[in-house]
């Protein structure tokens, strides 16, 4: 997992996605090839602003082993201001979340590779009303 995680650090630590200059589309996670333009793709990396709204969500009660500490937690499908959809954990009281809620990015721990392994950090979201 270590090299696999490290390779994408840039895109996990912040919302760095792809933009196709040929068709003006944004993508997250980043892509090397635009699904609309393929061979004519002109992909470049762009940081996305971390604001969006909740399109849909769930509260996870039955969590995988490595996420048991955080349950119940919210996983939301979030639409960013540039129209890109991002699936992310939304850190908040599960009673607080609703469709349409404004959210913003936050830097959090995803987990760790055991007590002596590396720590995985990345982007999650929080309600925009949180500081």
């Amino acid at each position: 997992m270590l090299p696999r995680f490290w390779r994408k650090i840039k895109y996990r630590y912040d919302l760095v996605g792809s933009y196709c200059e040929n068709c003006q589309s944004f993508f997250y996670p980043p892509r090397n090839l635009c699904p609309h333009c393929r061979r004519r793709s002109k992909i470049k990396e762009v940081p996305f602003n971390g604001k969006g709204k909740v399109l849909s969500y769930t509260v996870v009660h039955d969590a995988p082993e490595e996420y048991k500490d955080e349950k119940p937690y919210v996983i939301a499908l979030i639409e960013l201001e540039n129209g890109v959809k991002v699936l992310s954990q939304l850190v908040c009281d599960p009673k607080e979340v609703e469709i349409g809620m404004e959210v913003k990015k936050a830097f959090r721990k995803y987990g760790e590779d055991g007590a002596s392994g590396i720590i995985y950090y990345g982007t999650k979201f929080v309600p925009a009303s949180h500081f």
Binding site: A106, F107, K109, Y121
Partner: peptide
């Protein structure tokens, strides 16, 4: 649970 000195620093 998912916060530490690194996340606070960032």
């Amino acid at each position: 649970v998912d916060e530490d000195t690194a996340t606070i620093s960032v």
